[in-house]
Write a protein that binds this DNA or RNA. Sequence first.
RNA 1: UGGGGAGUCGCCAAGCUGGUCUAAGGCAGCGGAUUUUGAUUCCGCCAUUCGAGGGUUCGAAUCCUUCCUCCCCAGCCA
Length: 582
Amino acid sequence: MSAPSPRKQHEASHSNFIRQIIEADLMAGKYARRKWNGKPGSAFSLHNAPTDPAKIRTRFPPEPNGYLHYGHAKAICLNFGLARDYGGGCHLRFDDTNPAKEETEYVDSIREAVKWLGFSWEDPGGNRNEYYASDYFEYLYQFAEELVRRGHAYVDSLSAEQMRALRGTLTEPGKNSPYRERPVEENLKLFREMHLGRFADGEHVLRAKIDMASPNINLRDPAMYRIRHAAHHRTGDHWCIYPTYDWAHGVSDALENITHSLCTLEFEDHRPLYEWFNERLAEDWTGYDGVKRPGLLQQPLPRQIEFARLNVTYVVLSKRKLIQLVEERHVDGWDDPRMPTLVGARRRGFTPEGFRLFAERIGVAKADSWIEFSILEDCMREHLNEAAPRRVAVLDPLKLVIENYPEGKEEECEAPNHPHKPEWGRRKLRLSRELWIEREDFSESPPKGYFRLFPGNRVRLRYGYIVECIGYDKTTDTVRCTYDPDTRSGTPGAEKVKVKGNIHWVSAKDSFAAEVRLYDRLFKVPHPGAGDSELVPDLNPDSKKLVTAQLEAALKGARPEEQFQFERHGYFTADRVDSTAR
RNA sequence: UGGGGAGUCGCCAAGCUGGUCUAAGGCAGCGGAUUUUGAUUCCGCCAUUCGAGGGUUCGAAUCCUUCCUCCCCAGCCA
């Protein structure tokens, strides 16, 4: 009978430049013939495979060397959201090409964070799709040898400093390395010896042979392999040469059948290189022996698309700055509720639903932008307003005595668990002569416009009676009141007296004390550490406050991560790490 | 001074195969209504203007052109 609310009818446009690209590709059937057998592989290995059931494939490719933060949440929602919306799959790929920096510990935490945000990396065909760049080391090595054979790569024996000197500058072209014209056979021999561990770190490096005069510095013969005698978190000591990001990333995408490879803006001028590598590998090649060899990668090749990374005011997301906060102990660790990490956000009470709403609300584009922190907070409140049951908590308790209320008498007042959801039921609050109220709800000499408790004023005890303040006893720090027995909430005549103020309370006898932590933004300025300025002076000294609150009895059994709205205060979460209910 | 990007309301962001744009939507803000949370919900208001100038056109945020501003790039990091 009722029409949908007009507000819901015209949902905001979710259109963005990435969706347009995908929709155009889908329309053109660009990726429709890709083959897939559930296992990343070369053109040869996929030759007889069936058609890929996933319409598109995206990937979230974190480097397992730190904790995920708000920025990653945006990327996760984007990649997984697109895959979901277009009948595709999104792979979780750990980009672990650098043995010096990566650890297994982070792999677990990243996996958990993605799951927590509500996403799964299983695809329409039922494949698990959890991959590691290190899974492709063998492919990468074989492909690199092939590029050497085809004259597209060479072993350089310059030191890092010498190489830098020859690279040129932003405005001057680079110069060719003296080793650039090494014959193919010699390159092959040296590369194999690099692989075999015959050289020390840094002695040689495999470079793509592109163009030292390119105005794009990434094309000035970029490194593909470096020698690192280091144990890798997954491959152990099996390798002593490791591929660079530029070499490994595009190939990984291609092996995994990725269609749309999304990354941030700083990789824009890496795209020509991304494409160069994949195109060289995908093209057919006729060797000096006259034998034609087919391309190594399935086509069409993945397409890299760049979007603007997330910036949030009052928040710092650079790894360097986050490490500084932890190491210098300005926070209590990576999962401190004030940290912009996902583990921190979770303890803070931020929710997956809130993050997904946030990602949707901020959109995705190519313009650098700063999102106001309040938008993130609003998204969280928007979800919690729906999802969190209401409870009463007095965070800064002040004693109140109802002098005309009989000693020993108790009454049960009913309060709804959610004002707009009667189906959530009601709970009982016990009213007695002595109560705790919020200190800021009383004023001996009220400022203008103050309509809560002050001598001579009447106010409603939420869900209970109307009381009138008759004084304040300084020595016992107690507010004195009388109540009007005819004004009990929910009874006939309760509305006979109109009052503007409505304050919350808990019974002195029935409530319990508990530590409550109040968190505010970590920084007091919108752009902490802007430019190269110091970060520390920008810290908000009041970002964390501990109070001993009086909580209503129903809060006693709160389970870790259970969330509530403390009426008239805001949202609170039982800490999953540290919540000792008393 | 090389190359690659970006500039639409306080903050995001649609639109950019030219007319339906005196520019969508969200957030914030401002009014007002409901309300036992100074909350929520609801209703209304909120860019004659699209970085600036010039041009093409009957008509431009959308096309051309000049200029301005901001961001990224010289790791054997990602």
